[in-house]
């Protein structure tokens, strides 16, 4: 069983790899004080569920401005609104993170299944974990804001 410290290290390494190899944007780990902010204001969250040997959810919470910048870098075009391209790009970031987390929670791949990615967005919403979950939240800093990567695992 992987410990929370190992999982946190994997979340950080995966996020840095995604941003350096596919989004082409510098990213750095933020401060713990930036880890938990609820409710989310003018944000978009991408989520992928884990089912099987370990159950939980991988989520990435982007302020709208960061999500639009990421999508613009992904697609090589200017993005000025939260549209289907942004929803798709944010979902793919969550999908790649979930795939990497699965590699350290799963033995050979079939004991944990990933859901298809989904997104929520809005002017204000609360992302609430159940009390009986292990929860990791890591803040990351990019040039135009702070976003958070979150993992919740059923105990």
């Amino acid at each position: 069983m992987s410990g929370l410290e190992e999982i946190t290290d994997k979340l950080v390494a995966s996020t840095v790899e995604i941003f350096s190899s596919m989004i082409m944007m510098d990213v750095a780990v933020g401060n713990d004080s930036e880890a938990t902010i609820n409710p989310y204001l003018k944000c978009i969250t991408g989520m992928v569920g884990l089912a099987g040997k370990r159950k939980g959810i991988v989520a990435v919470h982007f302020p709208n401005e960061v999500a639009m910048a990421i999508t613009g870098n992904f697609l090589g075009m200017d993005v000025s609104e939260i549209n289907e391209d942004v929803q798709d790009a944010v979902g793919e970031v969550a999908n790649m993170l979930a795939g990497d987390i699965k590699t350290i929670l799963s033995d050979k791949g079939k004991d944990i299944e990933l859901s298809l990615p989904s997104t929520i967005s809005g002017d204000q919403y609360v992302f609430q974990a159940k009390s009986d979950t292990e929860r990791i939240t890591v803040p990351f800093i990019v040039s135009n804001g702070v976003f958070r990567v979150e993992l919740e695992l059923e105990k």
Binding site: M96, A98, G99, K108, G109
Partner: peptide, 10 residues
């Protein structure tokens, strides 16, 4: 081309 890398699935 996938996020899936497990030996079983690949």
């Amino acid at each position: 081309i996938s996020t899936e890398t497990g030996d079983d699935i690949i």
